[in-house]
Design a protein around this nucleic acid. Structure first.
Ligand SMILES: [Mn+2]
Ligand SMILES: [Mn+2]
Ligand SMILES: [Zn+2]
Ligand SMILES: [Zn+2]
Lengths: 139, 139
DNA sequence: AACTAAATGCAACGATGTTGCAATAAAAAA
DNA sequence: TTTTTTATTGCAACATCGTTGCATTTAGTT
């Protein structure tokens, strides 16, 4: 495992991004949070930083495959760390996003089997699955 | 089938909603559009109406099970008519939302089989599936 | 035609998205 | 280490959307 203080810097450099304070802090905060982090909470953690900088930071890290939008209703967007399979050119997510109605947490849940969507005569490029229910811990 | 001019009024009355011009027009426009209608296009069709009225109209029709949010990325939300199974108390959607990268249309696609999501120890209440790809017509 | 409950229009505020540009800081080169 | 290069930041400014309160208007009812 990487040193707690070093891993964000390494992640950023691996995508040819400068390891600026806002970027490293964002990666650390999401990692520390444990599940997908709601945008409003991210904002609270970055009260001091400029709103535009945060906006561009998120955009850039999504673009480079370091974080992804884990869930997005009309109220709030959640962000989670990408797995190591994601690259600067392609996100690779074969997991679903689960929102628990009890603890309100959004988590990335990896399935054992691939989900099959049979849509004859359609070309399927990306599938995104959101599930709402009660999580393992809250049940 | 209902008379083209009458069906929105009947739909509204069936949910104990007043058949106001904005409401009937919204239902007609979405119906005429054929696929899920992007919010920006809805706005263009309602240039004259007040923004707040449109907001409350959409909210109310969603709440009463006459329309539903068919797709929602961070850029745009799409609205589609509900099927007849939806009631004033519960939406019942066992279909997926397909966004075509060619024609950009968002459609509600009904599947033959139910989609199975195996999440041991989780309670699954709602499943929402969004697929991006190329639609039947564009292929 | 009159009544009543509901819907609308307007004002107003907050959150978020988005761009341009000058100042600044990180990484690379010397 | 110092300099240079290039990417990032902060700020201003504008747009869109969500949301509420309240007075006015209107749809459906009597
Ligand atoms: Mn995820
Ligand atoms: Mn639909
Ligand atoms: Zn939970
Ligand atoms: Zn198409």
């Amino acid at each position: 495992m990487n040193n707690e203080l070093e891993f964000p810097i390494q992640m950023l450099h691996s995508r040819k991004l400068k390891a600026t304070p806002t970027r490293t802090k964002l990666l650390k905060e999401i990692h520390a949070y444990g599940s997908a982090m709601p945008y409003s909470l991210i904002c609270r953690k970055f009260k001091n930083a400029d709103r535009v900088t945060l906006y561009r930071t998120i955009e850039k890290l999504v673009e480079k495959g370091l974080i992804h939008r884990a869930f997005s209703n009309n109220k709030e967007t959640y962000y989670a760390l990408c797995n190591t399979k994601c690259t600067a050119t392609t996100h690779y997510h074969n997991h679903i996003h689960f929102k628990c109605t009890q603890c309100k947490l959004v988590t990335c849940e990896h399935l054992n089997e691939e989900v099959e969507i049979s849509l004859p005569d359609f070309v399927v490029d990306k599938i995104s699955i959101n599930v709402v229910g009660i999580c393992k811990s809250c049940k």
